Amino acid sequence: SAGGAMMFLPKFDVEKVIAVMRDCTTMMGVPTFYTRLLDHRKFDASLTKHMRLFISGSAPMLSETHVLFEERTGHKVLERYGMTETNMSTSNPFVGERRAGSVGFPLPGVALKIVDPDTGEPVQKGDIGVIEVRGPNVFNGYWNMPEKTAEELRSDGFFITGDLARMDEDGYVTIVGRGKDLIISGGFNIYPKELEMILDDQVGVLESAVIAVPHADMGEATLAILVRRESGPDINQIKALMKRDVARFKHPRDYIVVDELPRNTMGKVQKNVMRETYGSWFSSSTI
C-alpha cells in the first residue's frame, strides 16, 4: 500500500508555494501558476530537483512556458484535459513524449472523437471539430435539468464537450478553443487560438486573447487584446506580419494593449468579461 499528504493553500501565493515545495513531490496547477513561478528569482533547478511531476490543466499552456520551464528546472510539465462533466479525459504520457501545446491521448477506457458540430460525424485527422467523450468518467446528466442533459449527452453515451480540437496522425489531441469562442466574420470561421499562437510569439507580447466583437458590416469582427511585455509590442510590425502570413479574413480588425487579462480564481482567461468590456468597440468605428 501507499499513501501521501496533500497541501492546500487558500490562494496562489508564489512565496508560499516556493516555501512548501521542498516538502512536496508533485504539483498540480493552471498555466498562470507556472508563469508566476518562472518570474521568481528563487525558482530554479535546486528547488525542484526532488520533484517527481508537475501537472498543468484547466487552460492551455503556451509552448514558450513549456520550454522555459524545462530549461529552468529540467522537468517537462505534463499537460492534460478534463472538465466537471467528464473528470479527466486525456493526458500526455507519464512515460513517453510530452508534446508542448497538446493534451495528449484519451485515457484508458475513454473513447474520444472529434466531430463536425453540424453533422456529428467524425472529421479527418488534423481537421478541427468538437470533442465528444464516452466512458466511465462521464457523468449521468445534469441534476434536475433533463432538457440540458438531452442537448449535451447523446443516447449512445457520448458527451458533447463544446471544446474545439484537432487530433494529429499520432493521436495527440490539441485544444484550439471553446465553440462559443469561435468567430464568424463575414461568413468565415476564425479560430482565436490560431491567431493567439502567432501573437504570443511576437516581441513585446506576454500573452494575448482574440475575441469576437459585434460589427455592423461583418456581423462579428476580430479584436486582439495584447498583454504588454516590457516596453510593449510594435502594432505596425504585427500588422505587417499578419498581412504576409495570414489569410486576410482572419486579420484582427483592431488591437488593444493592456497590462493583464481578466481571469477567474482558477486562472482561466475570462473572454466573456472582455466581450462585455469591448462589446461596443466597433459600434462607431469605420475600421
Rank of each mutant, 00 (worst) to 15 (best):
E64W: 05
M61E: 03
R52G: 12
K76Q: 15
V77L: 11
L68C: 01
L68V: 06
L68M: 09
E71G: 04
T73A: 11
L78F: 04
K76P: 05
F54M: 07
F69A: 06
T73L: 09
T73C: 13
E79V: 09
T73W: 09
G74M: 14
R72G: 08
S58M: 13
F54V: 08
V67H: 01
S58E: 13
S63P: 02
M51E: 06
E70K: 15
V67R: 12
F54S: 04
S58F: 14
M61P: 02
F69K: 05
S63W: 00
M61R: 01
G74T: 14
E79S: 13
S56E: 05
S58K: 05
E71Y: 05
E70Y: 11
E64F: 01
K76T: 15
A59K: 07
T73G: 07
V67G: 00
K76Y: 08
V77P: 02
M51P: 09
L62K: 06
E71S: 13
S56Q: 06
M51A: 15
L62Q: 09
A59W: 08
I55C: 10
L53C: 10
V67K: 12
P60V: 00
S63D: 09
V77E: 02
F69R: 04
T65E: 01
L78S: 06
I55D: 03
S58W: 11
G57Q: 06
T65L: 04
E79L: 03
R80E: 07
P60W: 01
V67D: 07
S63Y: 02
M61H: 03
T65D: 06
T65C: 04
H75T: 10
F54N: 03
H75Q: 10
G57N: 13
V77R: 02
E64A: 10
L53V: 10
E70G: 00
P60E: 02
R52Y: 12
G74P: 12
L78Q: 12
L53Q: 13
E64L: 04
L62S: 09
S56C: 15
H66A: 03
F69Q: 04
S56T: 15
L62Y: 08
M61L: 13
K76L: 13
S58I: 05
T65G: 02
S56L: 02
H66R: 07
R80G: 10
A59F: 11
K76R: 15
E79C: 10
H66T: 00
R52E: 14
T73Q: 10
R72I: 04
L53P: 00
F54T: 03
T65K: 01
L68A: 14
L53S: 09
L53F: 05
T73S: 11
G74E: 13
H75D: 07
S63N: 10
F54R: 02
I55K: 05
G74Y: 14
S56I: 04
L68G: 00
L62A: 13
P60F: 00
F69Y: 06
P60N: 08
V67F: 01
R80S: 12
G57P: 00
L62D: 06
K76G: 08
T73V: 11
P60D: 07
F54I: 08
H75W: 11
L53A: 11
E64C: 01
M61W: 03
L78M: 14
P60M: 02
L62C: 00
I55E: 06
S58T: 15
P60T: 01
G57W: 04
M61A: 12
